[in-house]
Design a protein around this nucleic acid. Structure first.
Length: 336
DNA sequence: TATGCACTTTCCATCCGCTA
DNA sequence: TAGCGGATGGAAAGTGCATA
């Protein structure tokens, strides 16, 4: 399937397109395809009119860069903060969210999933199915990527996707959570809301901290922190473990995380050998390392291994009793 | 049983881009 | 330009488990 080659009114088409065009690919791959395409938006592709707009660079420092880039590069949607779903015709909201692999090999959600802002004045406080939240997030296309602290985010690969359409068996709990939360607002206690109000559905704080970003509430005089609807990280973790990743996949991930069958040096050597034939200079360029800088070798090795700069203190290296400085890449990019 | 460590959860803070 | 929405990063506290 080519870029933007999906039917934006069909959930099945969107899922098929996602499976074929996103899973297993990095944002660098997507960016390359996007740059080579004459169409820059879904609308232009449908009209058959090559785009004339120049793509606006999104800062690498932007916190929402991953989600914004996926929407822009893969689905041809310009980043926005509309209260409507990202793909209105199919009522699909796209959310990217990280998961992490724990030291014991289990999978957890890195974070709660923030759904949409909770406007105390405008939100429907009686009927969940009449809320802005439901309007926007009825169908959520969850795109999961593995969280890696220091890795260049453009190298992240989306490895799983899941259409979250509010599982029937979870709805009684979610509706109870909704009641508990809205009851507080109806009683003028929006300022007392907490993430622990719900089992699955909750509200998390938004905006600046301290007293800098408080808002009024409809039934009480006290200013309350701005809040957003969210699915709790514990619920997201359960979702990952029961519905997103199969038992087999989890066992495989756990085995890989706990694989002690190979000496650590061998694992490292195998990683470095992927870059056989590339010079150190080429590798420095590829991994954005200053070729002329002191200590470039260790920086390069760290980047190749996708490990943090405080690597010498990480559990893996402690376990292996190794020091990164002992690893060298020669002028041909081979481990020595 | 006390202690330390790893993991999990909760909360706070901040940033960036878009819109009115 | 202020406010809003979407997102990430990190600190602190709670919990469970292994070990001495």
């Amino acid at each position: 399937m080519g870029l933007f080659d999906y039917d934006n009114s069909s959930i099945d088409s969107i899922l098929k397109y996602t499976a074929e065009n996103l899973v297993g690919r990095s944002l660098y791959d997507l960016l390359e395809e996007y740059q080579n395409s004459e169409y820059k938006t879904y609308e232009d592709k449908k009209k058959g009119t090559p785009s004339t707009i120049t793509r606006k660079e999104i800062s690498k420092l932007s916190k929402g860069i991953y989600g914004n880039l996926v929407e822009e590069l893969l689905y041809g949607i310009n980043p926005n903060n509309s209260p409507d779903p990202d793909i209105p015709a199919a009522r699909v909201e796209i959310k990217t969210t990280p998961y992490r692999v724990n030291a014991n090999g289990t999978i957890s959600a890195k974070e709660r999933l923030v759904l949409s802002m909770f406007n105390f004045h405008e939100e429907n406080l009686d009927d969940f199915y009449q809320t802005h939240l439901w309007h926007k997030c009825q169908n959520i296309l969850l795109l999961f990527y593995k969280y890696q602290k220091t890795r260049d985010i453009l190298n992240n690969i989306t490895d799983k996707f899941f259409l979250f359409d509010w599982p029937e068996e979870d709805m009684p709990t979610i509706l109870e959570d909704y009641k508990r939360i809205t009851q507080k607002v109806l009683e003028g206690r929006a300022h007392e809301l907490s993430e622990s109000d719900g089992m699955y559905l909750s509200t998390c704080r938004k905006g600046a901290g301290k007293d800098k970003d408080r808002t009024t509430q409809p039934y009480g005089p006290e200013l309350a922190n701005r809040r957003a609807w969210s699915l709790k990280s514990s619920y997201m973790t359960t979702l990952l473990r029961t519905k997103v990743f199969s038992q087999e996949e989890q066992e495989s991930i756990a085995r890989a995380a706990q694989d002690t069958s190979k000496p650590f040096t061998q694992i490292i050597e195998e990683k470095l050998l992927q870059y056989r034939g590339q010079s150190e200079k080429e590798l420095c360029k590829k991994f954005d390392v200053n070729f002329n800088a002191k200590g470039r070798n260790s920086t390069l090795v760290r980047k190749i291994l996708g490990l943090s700069s405080d690597i010498d203190s990480t559990a893996e290296f402690k376990k292996a009793n190794m020091n990164i400085r002992a690893i060298r890449v020669d002028k041909n990019g081979l481990p020595k």
